[in-house]
């Protein structure tokens, strides 16, 4: 076998090894999102605590942070304090809105969870899972940032803690809040 063929064979084997490694040690639950830079689907649902209807449309022109959670989700409890801290950080900015989306949950359990862990913003109930499917959600917690133009700018699967929190607040939300919304004129 010539040296060229031997080298090709080694490269092929290395490629296969890399794929095998990815298959064994990569995160099998990670699904790359296709929603970034697409229009955020509108939704409408009852508020977990008051029952009043909340719709995404009512926050047009603002930066919206959507956080999908459930009372049975362990990682949601892990991130809860950071989520409250994040709201505290931006709540005085009139351009910022934070909404929780209660996913695959029972209403009494969700209410008890909010009472126990605290809540400073509204939470909408996803009654039939339609909202979660519209956002390509496959587990909780998942967090989305929607910009002033209604486009999804960021998605994170997993708890918002540590470096993820820093990245989300400093590199995603803060720059968006400084950005001026583009105005469209209609004739």
């Amino acid at each position: 076998m010539s040296k060229g063929w031997q080298l090709t064979l080694i490269l092929c084997l290395l490629g296969l090894f890399a794929l095998f490694y990815q298959g064994l040690w990569g995160d099998p639950h990670h699904i790359p999102t296709v929603l970034i830079e697409t229009d955020a689907p509108n939704f409408e649902g009852p508020d977990v605590e008051t029952g009043q209807t909340i719709s995404l449309d009512q926050f047009k022109g603002k930066v919206v942070l959507l956080n999908f959670w459930a009372s049975w989700c362990y990682e949601c409890k892990v991130e809860h304090e950071s989520i409250l801290q994040l709201h505290q950080l931006f709540k005085d900015n009139p351009e910022f809105v934070m909404l929780g989306v209660n996913y695959q949950d029972e209403l009494p359990a969700a209410k008890k969870y909010l009472k126990e862990y605290g809540s400073t913003f509204s939470h909408v109930r996803d009654l039939k899972g339609q909202l979660a499917i519209d956002y390509g959600v496959y587990g909780v917690p998942e967090t989305f940032v929607i910009d002033q133009q209604g486009k999804i700018r960021h998605k994170w699967v997993g708890p918002i803690t540590g470096e993820v929190y820093t990245n989300l607040t400093q590199k995603v939300i803060a720059p968006l809040l400084k950005a001026q919304p583009t105005t469209t004129t209609t004739s």
């Binding site: 099998p28 639950h29 699904i31 695959q104 039939k128 899972g129 339609q130 979660a132 499917i133 496959y138 587990g139």
Partner: peptide, 23 residues
């Protein structure tokens, strides 16, 4: 089924698969 991965949403018993069938 995005939760169970090796199953399709017809065969999966996961709540998300059930909701997807509803959709």
């Amino acid at each position: 089924c995005t939760v169970c991965q090796t199953e399709n949403i017809w065969e999966s018993g996961a709540p998300l698969a059930q909701q997807m069938r509803g959709v």
